[in-house]
Nucleic acid binder design. Structure first.
Lengths: 230, 230
DNA sequence: TCTGGGTGTAAAAAGATCGTAAAAATGGAG
DNA sequence: CTCCATTTTTACGATCTTTTTACACCCAGA
């Protein structure tokens, strides 16, 4: 996942424990020992989640909570030794997204972090390749040319995909063949390629007879040019 | 505020306690004593939040949790006597938004309810999909075409649901089969698909012979097109 | 001008996949 | 047990892809 998590706690051993565990779960961690520093870091780094200890030396943790909430909706999980119900209610009503009492189980905290992150779940951007007037949406398996969808057969699509993911680079006959016709022995290979390159050109080139997208490198292979070149 | 809250708990005295307290705070309450009834109520009433006891007589509470999560993003606060960490992690990772252990303080629960409601306050997520002239109400399990209800068998519905929740995207044969025929081995799979895609087309396409909703991507799978495309 | 490797189109044959109807099996309700 | 809706299986023709075959091309170099 790799979300950035800001740890605001004055006890070094707690910070270390959190840091190690979080990093073991694939998160990136930033640390702050004081409320003041925590607020600054929250503004600078823009973490995806904040773990906030209420028992800070320089200021009341709830103060830090309120200050961060003035401009940010980042999920904040409050972690504290105080177990009084009043404190929980206060923190939750002042913007905390969860409240965990020390000592807490690490796996529970991790689950609560996942839950909090889920609330702001904006699914990661889909990989969309853009090469000139060509758009290739790998997740949706959609190819568009000037916004118009282009119908491709599986082999055509695979071929275009491998060239697009290596756009600007020359792909040798052998490389293309092995990527598209997986695990078949190289026989009439470059003839297949010629046929399918032909199909592709007919479908995505303005003028298939004079291709300016799929360039042939004689004796070597083919190359999908990226727009800056002509 | 007046949010509707569904209470799913088999103990009448707990339900009463929750009902009285919640109503005192201005909430509207609905009650269910069993998991089965809870799931039905969740679909019928569309509560703004659900309080779910895991210790239900008729079914495992986590089962109910998962079922509701299939079509709804309503906040669910799990309330239970079980205090084991494993259970907490499991529930949180399966869609619960919070986990409170009995006995709990009422004011804390109220604060956690307010926090949970805050999360969905600014993202009204209707569990109703609209794709062209097709309307799919995931909560009520109702499909309409031009306002006319469409009768679907369970398998047909599951198939349409998985395609609709991934509208615009190509679903491979394998993906569709695993979603709809859960945990069966891939054998005559794509044949089942052909048959059921045929059924669906007959029921939702204007002209089943020339489908413009469920289009087949030969060699790959099927795609439910979203209206902007033709 | 002829020759030959590498290349580009077209269209055929071969092969795989797809759509439909309808029969057989399954399973739940009464 | 019987009925009925649904699912699974069977069968076959239609359609789409891939592979194969055929031939024209361009451009060196002899």
């Amino acid at each position: 996942m790799g979300a950035k998590i800001l740890i605001v706690d004055d006890e070094p051993q707690i910070r270390k424990l959190l840091r190690v565990t979080l990093q073991a779960h694939g998160f990136t961690t930033i640390e702050a020992a004081t409320g003041q520093d925590g607020i600054i870091q929250a503004g600078m780094i823009r973490p995806d989640l904040i773990i906030l200890d209420l028992g800070l030396p320089d200021m009341d943790g709830t103060k830090a909570l309120s200050q961060i909430r003035e401009w940010s909706v980042v999920p904040i999980i409050v972690v504290t030794v105080r177990d009084d119900e009043e404190g929980k209610v206060y923190a939750l009503d002042h913007g905390a997204d969860d409240y965990v009492t020390k000592p807490f189980g690490m796996s529970e905290l991790m689950a609560r972090i996942r839950t909090a992150l889920r609330h702001v779940a904006n699914q990661p951007d889909e990989p969309v390749l853009k090469i000139g007037k060509l758009t290739i949406d790998l997740a949706r398996r959609i190819v568009e040319r000037d916004g118009q969808p282009v119908r491709l057969t599986p082999t055509e699509y695979d071929l275009l995909k491998t060239m697009a993911t290596n756009a600007g680079r020359v792909m040798t006959h052998r490389q293309l063949f092995q990527q598209v016709w997986k695990g078949q022995n190289y026989e009439t290979a470059d003839h297949y390629l010629r046929v399918y390159i032909g199909h592709l050109r007919k479908k995505i080139e303005d003028n298939p007879a004079q291709p300016n997208l799929i360039i042939t490198e004689p004796g070597v292979g083919y190359r999908l040019v990226i727009p800056s070149e002509s």
